[in-house]
């Protein structure tokens, strides 16, 4: 069985009378250490799927197992602990906490995981900041950084506690293309070092085409699931 196992997943949003069937039977298996890109037109259900995999949202029908855990049966508290321990998130809007410095932002997941030793936290945080090239900005506040720098901090924060799964929903949408490429590369490199599974959702065609594995969603269903050959090409996606 895969690291992530999804069977016939359905999710409907209710807006008063009307309903939006955002996911209509998605089935998917992801192995540990895989790096998966998720594409598809706007409104196809990418974010919805990521939220459910990331244990941020509930679903109506189907089954999902993440890291060997049947998350549907867990309560809020258990899910929160599960996310803190096993999942790292990178968001489109960076979502750094404005009152915390770069260092403190990256330190937060370690605090959540109950790392008592300030010395250990410091070395972990500094290691991550060094890896994203922002050690010199440790004392800065997020509003003193550029978008690209903020997203680097967010990557450091998402990976500092060595999560087994990294989820990124359009992490480059607010960045120029050069910066965006560097950000994606950084995520891939760092997560490879840690052996984490990565799921990145993007509209960037080039990224999708070059992905090791690429999944296209349309109208809440998987339209295409292509794994690259040894050359690492997924032309089949398009």
């Amino acid at each position: 069985m895969g690291f992530i196992q999804i069977n016939e997943l359905h999710k409907t949003y209710w807006l008063g009378e009307s309903q939006v069937h955002a996911l209509r039977g998605v089935s998917l298996a992801v192995n540990e250490g895989e790096r998966l890109f998720l594409g598809g037109p706007s409104g196809s259900g990418k974010s919805t799927l990521l939220h459910i995999i990331g244990c941020l949202d509930r679903f109506d029908q189907g089954r999902i197992v993440v890291a060997g855990r049947d998350v549907a049966s867990a309560d809020d508290r258990a899910l929160a602990d599960f996310r803190a321990r096993y999942i790292g998130f990178v968001f489109q809007n960076f979502n750094l906490l404005p009152v915390l410095t770069v260092f403190e932002n990256v330190e937060y997941p370690l605090l959540l995981n109950g790392e008592k030793s300030a010395k250990k936290r410091r070395s972990r945080v500094e290691g991550m900041l060094e890896a994203v090239g922002l050690l010199g900005h440790a004392k800065h506040y997020p509003n003193e950084l550029s978008g690209g720098q903020r997203q680097r901090v967010a990557i450091a924060r998402a990976l500092v506690h060595h999560p087994r799964l990294l989820i990124a929903d359009e992490p480059t949408a607010n960045l120029d293309s050069t910066t965006g490429e560097a950000i994606i590369q950084l995520m891939l490199d760092l997560s490879r070092e840690q052996g984490s599974t990565v799921i990145i959702c993007t509209h960037n065609r080039e990224l999708l085409e070059n992905a090791e594995r690429c999944i296209l969603l349309r109208d809440g269903k998987i339209e295409n699931d292509a794994t690259a050959g040894t050359q690492g090409r997924t032309a089949a996606c398009f």
């Binding site: 990331g54 941020l56 809020d76 508290r77 929160a80 602990d81 599960f82 996310r83 803190a84 321990r85 999942i87 998130f89 968001f91 809007n93 979502n95 906490l97 404005p98 937060y108 997941p109 959540l112």
Partner: peptide
């Protein structure tokens, strides 16, 4: 609100 969402996503309890 967005900050609360971020904290909760990272695993902060209610």
């Amino acid at each position: 609100t967005a900050e609360i969402g971020t904290l909760r996503a990272m695993g902060t309890h209610r």
